[in-house]
């Protein structure tokens, strides 16, 4: 099997890809990056916490003009995943305000963004719309 590496270390790959945060054991604040101490309570102990893989879009922007080397357009989003705010692109959807809407339900998805000289694939994540009709057949 091809070796894979996540774009960021808070993306956990495998059968059920998900994001993981460093959660302050004292106050429960969650951080995706490494922290010396908690920004909320200054506590110094953290434990790993898995983040919900579904959420709702609470803000987005459609970037049409970006820095050189960044392909446009793309949709940048701010997603509420079960009470934890997550930044990520909104993918697998037309990048316009007819298809991307506030409050839209989404789920985490991953994709290969490139392969290095050693043949290792880097994997990124985004959020894709959950088709509202999807659950109906099963129900």
């Amino acid at each position: 099997m091809t070796n894979q590496i996540p774009l960021v270390d808070y993306l956990v790959l495998g059968d059920e890809p998900h994001l993981v945060a460093n959660e302050c054991t004292a106050c429960g604040a969650r951080f995706f990056d490494r922290r010396n101490a908690c920004a909320s309570c200054s506590g110094t102990e953290f434990a790993k916490a898995a983040i919900d893989t579904t959420g709702v879009v609470k803000a987005f922007t459609i970037v049409s003009f970006a820095a050189p080397g960044v392909p446009v357009p793309f949709v940048a989003g701010f997603v509420d995943c079960g009470g934890t705010s997550v930044r990520g692109n909104i993918v697998n959807v037309e990048p316009d305000d007819q298809h991307v809407t506030l409050g839209m339900p989404v789920r985490l998805t991953t994709s290969v963004m490139g392969t290095d000289e050693a043949g290792t694939e880097a994997v990124t994540f985004g959020f894709e719309p959950i088709d509202p009709t999807e659950g109906e057949a099963a129900a």
Binding site: L7, V8, A67, V70, F74, A76, R87, G88, A122, F125
Partner: peptide, 11 residues
């Protein structure tokens, strides 16, 4: 991160 994230993870 193994590569730049601007445009890949939000903006």
């Amino acid at each position: 991160s193994v590569a730049p994230v601007d445009g890949r993870i939000g903006t």
